[in-house]
């Protein structure tokens, strides 16, 4: 985990970036008629039953995500500020939990947190409150109790 690191509070950029994320979900709904839930889009590509409907569209959406950073870097001429933990076992465990939990719970921050809340879905509101709480507790334990 390494030492905790301060990050700059960016209300304007975060609001604008959020608006762009919202515009993307609306575009996907208007054209494909689907919720932009990233965990759903990715898990649909995976076995078993990889040939679920919307598979091809999911692939194109993922390609769009993958080219975002290279295009951003090309346009801005500088690399992205990013701090990724070098605790690889921890990240491996986190990846398993995120993958397993998002498929079991039918969604992640995008599907439940953005699209679901926007639809005032009771299930999504319950899911979002639940994952926010468990994430908050996980960080509290990790940073302030275990002190990793």
């Amino acid at each position: 985990m390494g030492p905790t690191m301060e990050t700059e509070f960016t209300p304007i950029l975060s609001l604008l970036g959020g608006g762009l994320i919202g515009a993307s979900t609306v575009l996907l709904m208007a054209t494909n008629g689907r919720i932009a839930g990233i965990s759903g889009i990715i898990s649909r590509i995976l076995p078993p039953s990889a040939a679920a409907p919307g598979l091809l569209q999911g692939l194109f959406f993922v390609i769009g995500l993958l080219v975002s950073a290279p295009i951003w870097i090309m346009v801005n001429g500088q690399s992205l500020v990013q701090t990724v933990s070098d605790n690889l076992p921890l990240l491996g465990a986190a990846g398993i939990l995120v993958g397993f939990g998002s498929v079991l719970g039918n969604g992640c921050t995008s599907g439940h947190g953005v699209c679901g809340i926007s639809r005032l879905s009771g299930r999504s509101i319950v899911a979002t409150v639940t994952f926010m709480s468990s994430a908050f507790i996980a960080v509290l334990l990790l940073r302030h109790v275990i002190g990793a």
Binding site: G101, G105, N106, V126, S134, A138
Partner: peptide, 23 residues
Amino acid sequence: LVSGAAIFGVGWGISGFCPGPAV
């Protein structure tokens, strides 16, 4: 739904990654 979201949250918290940003 609730257990899935709870498990997801733990992974999200300890890594700071959810599927979209990770990809």
